[in-house]
Design a binder for these strands. Sequence first.
DNA 1: TTGAAAGCGCTAACAG
DNA 2: CTGTTAGCGCTTTCAA
Lengths: 342, 342
Amino acid sequence: MYSMTTSAVPAPRGPVTRKDVARFAGVSTAVVSYVVNGGPKKVAPATEAKVQDAIRVLGYRPNAAARALKLGSSETLGLIVPDISNPFFSLFSHAVEDAAAALGYALVLSNSDGNLAKERRNVRNLAARQVDGVLLASVLFEPDLEALETADIPSVLLNQERDAPGFNSIGVDLAAGARIAVEHLIGHGHANIGLAMGTNVSGSTDGREVGWRQALQEAGLPEGPISYSAFTRPGGYVAGQRLLASVNRPTAIFATSDMQGIGLLRAIHEAGLSVPGDIAVASFDGSADSEYSWPPLTTVEQPVAAMAEAAVAALVGASRGEKPRHRIFPTKLHIRQSCGCP
Amino acid sequence: MYSMTTSAVPAPRGPVTRKDVARFAGVSTAVVSYVVNGGPKKVAPATEAKVQDAIRVLGYRPNAAARALKLGSSETLGLIVPDISNPFFSLFSHAVEDAAAALGYALVLSNSDGNLAKERRNVRNLAARQVDGVLLASVLFEPDLEALETADIPSVLLNQERDAPGFNSIGVDLAAGARIAVEHLIGHGHANIGLAMGTNVSGSTDGREVGWRQALQEAGLPEGPISYSAFTRPGGYVAGQRLLASVNRPTAIFATSDMQGIGLLRAIHEAGLSVPGDIAVASFDGSADSEYSWPPLTTVEQPVAAMAEAAVAALVGASRGEKPRHRIFPTKLHIRQSCGCP
DNA sequence: TTGAAAGCGCTAACAG
DNA sequence: CTGTTAGCGCTTTCAA
C-alpha cells in the first residue's frame, strides 16, 4: 500500500540505505545505527519502534561492505582445503560452516587442489578480502602466511600433526590413532600387517606410519609390506594391487585414509579375495563412506566437529590477542566388519 | 633493508593503503588506482614501474571492502546447498568454485541442512553481504528470493527439473536419464525392476520416477515395487531392505542417487545376495563413490562441471541484463558392473 | 536521548 | 599523463 500513497517520504529508487530509514523514521542516521546494532547508545523505546517500523517497511538491509570498511572486519572466515569433494574435507567444511555461522561469520571456501601456487593465491585473495581469519589445510608443513601476517589476520593450520612454532594449529593424534587400529588387527591374530600409506609433501614421517610401526614393534611383529600412494580411492586401489602382489602378501592392511581403504577393498574384491576372510582391513578418518562400503570399514574416527569448533574458536581467540597454540585431538576406533569383527 | 634506512617515507604502522603507496611512489592516489586496475586511464610506463615497486615494497593489498562499497559489488558469489558433505554437492561446489574463481569471484558457502528456515536465513545473509549472485539448491520448487530481488541480486536455482517462471534455473533431464538406465537394465533381461526413490518436498512427481515408469511401459513391463526414502546412504539401505522383503522381489533396482545405490548395495550384501547375480543395480549422479563401490555402480552421470559453469555464467549474464531462463543438461550412462555388464 | 560530522579505503569524474 | 576530490554506507566520538 505504501507505494500507492503519496507520502512526504517517497520510496528510494536504489537499494535502501540507513539514510532512507532515518528520513522515513524522522530520526538521525546515528539513531538507526544504535537500534540496528543495539548500541553503543541507548534509544528511547518509542524511537526504537519508529525505526524498526521504518526498517521493516522499507525492507532495509545493512550494507555489509560499508560495515566491513568502517570496522575493518568482514565477519567472514576463509577456508582453504585441497579439495572439497574429498569427503573428509567436505565433512570438515560443514562443521566449520556451522561453527562460523553460530558466531555470525560467513565462510569463504576455496580449493587449492593440492597445488602450492593456487594455495598461495587463495591465501592472498582472502587477505585482500579482509576476512577475519583463515583456516588452512595446507600442502606444506609451514605454509607462507605472510599476506595474512602483514594484514594482521589470524590463521589456523588444519590437519597439523606437529607443532609448527608461531602457528595456530590443530590436528589429531595420528600415531595413537594408527596404533589402536593396528593393535586391533593384531588382536585378531594377524602377524603380517601391511600399510597403504598416503603420501604428503611434509618432510617428516607421517604419524600414521609411525603408529603402525610402533604397534608392530611392541607386539614383536615384523613390519609388513608398505605401499605409498595418494590419499585417494585410486591411490588405495593401486596400493592394494601392489600389496596383494607382494612376495609376502599381508593378511591384514591398514590404510591411512578411508578413501584409500575403499580403493583397497575394490582391489581385494577384484582379486577374488574376501574381506575380512582373506584380508582384514582397517582405515583412518571415520567418514560416512566407511560405514557403507562392503564390508563396512573398521576405521579410526577423527572428531571433526570438535576440531572445527576449536579451529574457529582459535581464530576468534587470536583476534582477541591469545597466543598461537597447537591443539591435538584424540581419535576413536570404530569397529565394524572389515577387521574381522562380527 | 627498507626498515633499516631512514627514509622520507616511513613505513606505515597499520595496514598499507593506497595512500601509502601513492606517497611512497611520489604520485597521487588516482594513479595508483589506475595501475592497480589497469585503467580507466593510461599511466606512463616509468610511473607505473614506480608504483609497482612501491606496491611490492610496501606489500600493498587493495582493500576489498572499500572496493565493494564503492563499486557496489563484492566480487563474491553465494552458494547455498542442503549439505556440502553430500558428495554430489561437494563435487558441484568444487566446480562452482572453479568457475567463480576463473571470473575473479570468491565463493561464500552455506548449508541449509534441508531446513527451510535456515535456507531463508542464508539467503538474507547473502543479500546483506552484497554478494553479486546466489546459487541456490533449494528445499522448495519456488523459494523465497525476495531479499535478493529487493537488493537486485541475481540468482540461479540448482537441481531444478522444471522451468520455474521468472527464475533462472539449471537442471538435468531427470526423466531421460532414468529412462536410459532402466532401459539398460531391461536390456539385461530384467522384467521386474524396482525403484528406490528419493523423497523431496516439491509437489510433483520426480522425473526419475517418471523415467523409470516410461521405460517400463514402453517395454510392456509391469511396474516393479517402489520404496520411497531419503536420497542418502541410509535411505538407500532402508529402501533396499524393504524392496528385498517385498512379495515380488525385483531382480533389478534403479536407485535415484548414488548414495541410495550404495546403501542399496549394503542391504543386498547383508542379505547374502550378490550383485549383479541376484539383483542388478543402477543409480543416478555419477559421483566418485559410485566408481569405487563393490561392485562398481552403473550410474547416470550428471555433467556437473558444465552445469556449474552455466550457473555461474547465468549469474554474470543476469547482472548484464539477460533475462531468466531454464537450462536443461543431458546425462550420460556410465556402464560399470552392478548392472550385469562384464 | 539524539544529532552532526569525520572518516574507513577506494574509484572515477573532472580539472589541469 | 597526473592530481583533486566527492562520495559509496556505515560507526562512533563529541556536542547538544
